[in-house]
Amino acid sequence: MTVVWILFVSSVIVLPAAALLALRWAVRHGEFKNLQKTALSIFDEEEPVGRMTDRFPGPQRSSKSSQP
């Protein structure tokens, strides 16, 4: 039964505590500030906003609609 109690304690105390710590870390490190800037973080000079980064292989099917 020991292992079941370890599991119970970890599920009831450790996991919620870990979630709260993660939330605290996020607040302290400004993860919830300037959210729109974060939304842009997946773009860079090579793959900027406004450029599609995937197309069917081969000749372009619909160049008018797929060009940024």
């Binding site: 939330l23 919830f32 974060t38 939304a39 906003v49 980064t53």
Partner: peptide, 26 residues
């Protein structure tokens, strides 16, 4: 959340909604 904005070249519509979505799922 990564591939749709990345493929389109358009940032996600409301990033704040994504934060709410994650923590409410958790």
């Amino acid at each position: 959340y990564y591939f749709i904005p990345k493929v389109l070249g358009i940032p996600v519509y409301k990033y704040s909604l994504s934060v709410i979505g994650f923590w409410s799922l958790a």
